[in-house]
Design a protein around this nucleic acid. Structure first.
Lengths: 123, 123
DNA sequence: TGGATAGTTCAATAACTCATGAGTAGTTGA
DNA sequence: TCAACTACTCATGAGTTATTGAACTATCCA
């Protein structure tokens, strides 16, 4: 992941709908979810709007799509998200020990306080 | 770091100038750098433009400022960057093991390949 | 072939972001 | 107090992004 890709990725993530999309698709794993089901899961947003945001995420290489019969299945590109994390840590934060501290606490372990929080804003 | 804060942070990072600013300020550490010096370091960008981007980063709580005599010193808020990383890993990526793999390799260790790269896009 | 289903694309408009340059505010030292 | 210095704020205009609804494409099945 180079700087340009990272900029595109940050830009793609800087929208509530798209952040929701990513979070939903990460939960779905490699199987992914059809566009229609995504629309239902996210509370019936207008189809064209959803399509626009999905296209934006795909252009940023954060998700990928495949057609299965009448459906278009979207799934997250884990290597892209990993690459973005890596970019943020290495190139952007310079692997600063203070910043990195949050990564050493095995992120995701429920109840582990991270930077003054107690993991209350979990989905 | 909640979703709204993360959105603001992503939005703030989604601009080349501001990404450069963050990278510069991370390198400076807690001492920070005066606005004028930042302008010089980044190749004489117009002062008002710089001020605008610094204000955007500060509004996103990614940096902080303090006045020292005639200068305004900007420095990075490490806990905010850490919080953003944490949010991206936990809330956004759901601590997916595949995505997390990039964090286990002690990011920043030069020469350690991360997701098919060899760390060539370093500043 | 024609209707139904699943999604995307397009055009118009609204809303937001960014760059620029002029003007303004805080600080210092003579 | 005044000039110089440092930096911010504001107004403007250009460019970009987002929303909406209608039209379109692809697929399936009877």
């Amino acid at each position: 992941m180079d700087r340009e890709q990272a900029l595109t990725a940050f830009s793609a993530l800087a929208h509530a709908d798209r952040l929701d999309l990513i979070r939903l698709l990460v939960r779905q794993g490699p199987e992914g979810l059809a566009a229609g089901q995504i629309g239902v899961a996210l509370g019936g947003r207008m189809a064209s709007r959803l399509s626009f945001h999905l296209a934006t995420l795909e252009a940023a290489a954060l998700i990928t799509s495949r057609r299965v019969a009448r459906n278009v299945i979207y799934s997250v590109r884990t290597e892209a998200l990993g690459g973005l994390l890596s970019f943020l840590m290495r190139d952007c934060c310079g692997s600063d020990p203070q910043i990195m501290a949050c990564c050493d606490r095995h992120p995701g372990a429920e109840g582990v306080p991270v930077y003054g929080e107690a993991g209350t804003d979990k989905t």
